[in-house]
Amino acid sequence: MREPLLSAQGVSVRFGGLVAVDEVDLAVHAGELVGVIGPNGAGKTTFFHALSGILVPTSGRIVVVGDDLTGKSAHAFARHGIARTFQTPRVFKEMPAIDNIRFGLEFAGRTRKHAHDAFDEPEAILEFLGLADVAAVPAGGLTPSKQRLLEIGMALGARPRVLLLDEVAAGLTHTEVELTAQLIRRVRDELGLAVIWIEHAVRVLMDYVERVAVLHQGRKIADGDPRAVAKDAGVIEAYLGDEGEPAVEPTRKAA
């Protein structure tokens, strides 16, 4: 089998007595689009913190393209090609939108090339995201949904091998969610990235990913084909136990 781009091995994160992430294994390969779902507080964001080097896991290892990066600083993860967005956008507020994108290109992405030349210029990335008209606007002045898009652009600027998206579609209208999902698909297809995508809008997510992992109270309770996962008794239990979240049934067959 090919070597995974990113593999988490038995990753746990503890905050005092709370085990936010509990012995999670996950491996992703180039070209994979993996969804991560789970009720509020399941540990999804914390897992991303560990995968991107923001937090050092309490135990377990994180291996990126064969290199064990456990305990390394976040910039080492970024330089190895792990790029992420944040659940609440963390753009550089004072900088123009275009400099936010240039940032990744100048640092994490400096030594790599994209599979697609179109993503090697900040202007092109803005264009792709439909943000070309706000290139010169300080990022803090953009609407929240534009800031979310800009976050994706910042991550793309880092010329990632693995893209971690934390609820990039939150707060969008239904149409916007669909557009964002298509955009994520295109990025994956054109650049051949591995994408891990956390989303609360489970239905849409299930339509677009080929594989989904479910976190519940820090543990990974399922991982596989969305249709199979949706029928999994443990998953249904986890969601029903959580104040009857929407059913996890995909609405239509994955395109």
Binding site: S52, G53, I54, S73, A74, H75, F77, A78, R79, A83, R84, F86, R90, V91, F92, K93, E94, M95, D99, F103, G104, F107, A108, G109, R110, M154, G157, A158
Partner: peptide, 16 residues
Amino acid sequence: RGIGSDEERARTLGVD
């Protein structure tokens, strides 16, 4: 400037 704005974010974009 990135450090001044959000140091951790700058790190996740590859700045030592």
